[in-house]
Computed example of a mutant assay.
Amino acid sequence: MADIQHHTLRRVLRREIAGTIGLLTDEQDFRTMRNYRSFAFDDHTTYLQQVESLLRSLAAQGSHTTVALFDPVEYAEYCAESGLEPDTPSSRTRFTAHLAATGPTVPYDGQPLAELVPDLVDEAVRQATWEYATTLLARIGTCATCGEDIGRASFIRAAHLLTRVVDTAGPGSLHLVCSVSTAPDTLVAVLRVEERTDDAIRLDESEALEFTTVLALGIATRSAGGLVMRTTTPDTTDRVYGWRLRGENLDPLTASEVFDAYCTDIESGDLVSPESGVDYGTPPDLGDTGEGTHHTH
């Protein structure tokens, strides 16, 4: 009887354990992992199907599972730095636990893997963008004239501008895109504001941090950039408008400039078909946007 009770209690405790699966989303990464003899799979499609079946099984048992992006290059570096033999399941498990604490993850909520994978890749890009922008801001250093930290001052300025943009927007949910031209790539950040009241704004704090950091980098480096926002209200035509980043300020774009910006693919530069029922217009007045940092270095 005691053994049965202990077995039952252990089974109950398993439901209290959260797990993480390191997922090889890319077929090339999958082929790299096949170089390890202890890696049992030889077909990427079959591998993804088995992962999805496992996720469904764990969810049916009441377990909470997150999915992390497994990068073979990072895995090899992790094993080398940690003194681990990479060709063992236990090393892959330890690396996955490391990813759960430090890397991008997406919770499994029953969605198909075909929907989860793009979200996971987007999360990885978001984190990489934020880390890159943060590093560049930190490297700028202090103002040679007054000694102020330029990165910090630019971040404060960016946060103030973002607050003005959100506060002056019309009713409805907001979708904001900020792009800043930096060498060698253009950095892009997205912020969604799902719900707003007179007293509070509901948004993803991680998205807001990344968005503000990218905007701050544009301010600090005086890079070309812009901000485009789409407002959505039930039973009303969506509105799209935006601003050009000029130094430390946001200058309003004309309706035609907004149309061109919104209907051009940021990465390829190709034209994108405009949506019907969308009003491309000029933005509202941001009012007093305050003093800039005045750093010209």
Rank of each mutant, 00 (worst) to 15 (best):
T168K: 14
L162I: 13
L136S: 05
A133D: 04
T145Y: 10
L176Q: 06
W130M: 10
D122I: 03
A138R: 14
V177M: 11
E131C: 04
H160N: 14
G141Y: 10
G172N: 02
V117A: 11
A169W: 01
G151M: 10
L161G: 05
V166I: 15
A158W: 10
T142A: 14
H160R: 15
D122V: 04
T134A: 13
C143M: 11
R164T: 11
A144T: 14
E148A: 14
A169R: 00
R139C: 04
I150A: 06
Q127K: 04
Q127P: 00
C143H: 11
R139D: 15
T129E: 02
L120F: 03
V165W: 07
A128N: 11
G147D: 07
T142V: 14
G172I: 00
D149E: 14
D119V: 09
S154M: 09
D119M: 11
D167W: 02
V177A: 12
I156Q: 15
T135F: 09
L161K: 08
E131Y: 08
D149Y: 09
L176Y: 05
H175R: 15
P118T: 03
L176K: 07
A153R: 14
D167C: 01
V121Y: 04
R157T: 08
V165K: 09
S154W: 06
G151P: 10
A133C: 12
I156R: 15
D122R: 15
D119N: 10
R157G: 09
A133E: 04
T134L: 04
L176P: 05
S154R: 07
L120K: 02
T145H: 13
V166K: 04
T135N: 12
S154I: 08
Q127D: 01
D122C: 06
I156W: 10
L137G: 08
V165H: 09
A138M: 05
E148F: 05
G141A: 10
V117E: 11
L176I: 11
A138G: 07
Q127W: 00
A153T: 13
C143I: 11
T145G: 07
S154K: 08
V177H: 12
A133N: 04
D149Q: 12
A138V: 05
T168M: 11
C146D: 14
I150P: 05
L120Q: 03
L137R: 09
A159L: 06
G147P: 08
T142W: 00
L176D: 06
V177K: 12
E123Y: 03
F155R: 15
V166N: 02
W130T: 12
T142R: 14
L116S: 03
A128G: 05
V165M: 09
A169D: 01
G170R: 01
L162W: 03
A138P: 00
